[in-house]
């Protein structure tokens, strides 16, 4: 499998590297599709009246697992299919509403291998709207250390996320 499908190697990455930004215009469909795709039936993600009157916010807003899916997509766009998420942690500082242009950006914080030889990249990611960070995320993703390495083949004690 060549690099044509986006194969990132550990040696391609260094601390301080910036990931290409991803911009996306959020609509009501984005929010509702995202909620239903994650089987989240709570009304604040599809009913504006409920969101305003019960939650006290201006509109329906992106739900938690859909934000996770957006961050996963952003990371995998960068690593290609051999990138394997180990962990992801994010804090939602403010809600993302229809009408927002969300921009994902990321920086490589750390690069290294663990005692089992697995290559790891630690990323600091942000979902921004305008000048504001709406969600701050830290992700740890395994990437191949060589042309023949496959992080997905790691199991049991060889996988330390």
């Amino acid at each position: 499998m060549g690099r044509g499908i986006g194969r990132l190697l550990l040696s391609d990455v260094a601390p301080g590297d910036e990931m290409p930004k991803l911009a996306y215009d959020v609509t009501a469909t984005t929010v509702i599709l995202g909620a239903l795709a994650t089987r989240d039936w709570r009304p604040m993600h599809h009913d504006r009246d409920f969101a305003q009157q019960r939650n006290g916010v201006k509109d329906i807003f992106l739900n938690t697992p859909n934000q996770a899916a957006w961050f996963e997509r952003y990371v995998e766009d960068w690593t290609g299919p051999l990138g394997r998420l180990g962990r992801m942690k994010f804090r939602m500082r403010d809600s993302v509403f229809p009408g927002a242009r969300m921009v994902f950006q990321g920086t490589v914080q750390k690069v290294g291998t663990d005692e089992k030889g697995c290559g790891w990249v630690e990323l600091s990611l942000e979902l921004r709207v305008g000048e504001k960070t709406m969600t701050a995320c830290e992700a740890r993703v395994a990437v191949p250390v060589s042309e023949t390495d496959n992080p997905w083949a790691r199991k049991g004690e060889d996988w330390k996320p």
Partner: peptide, 10 residues
């Protein structure tokens, strides 16, 4: 509301 989420994948 939810404010924070962490997932560790095995």
């Amino acid at each position: 509301i939810m404010t924070e989420n962490e997932i560790v994948f095995h």
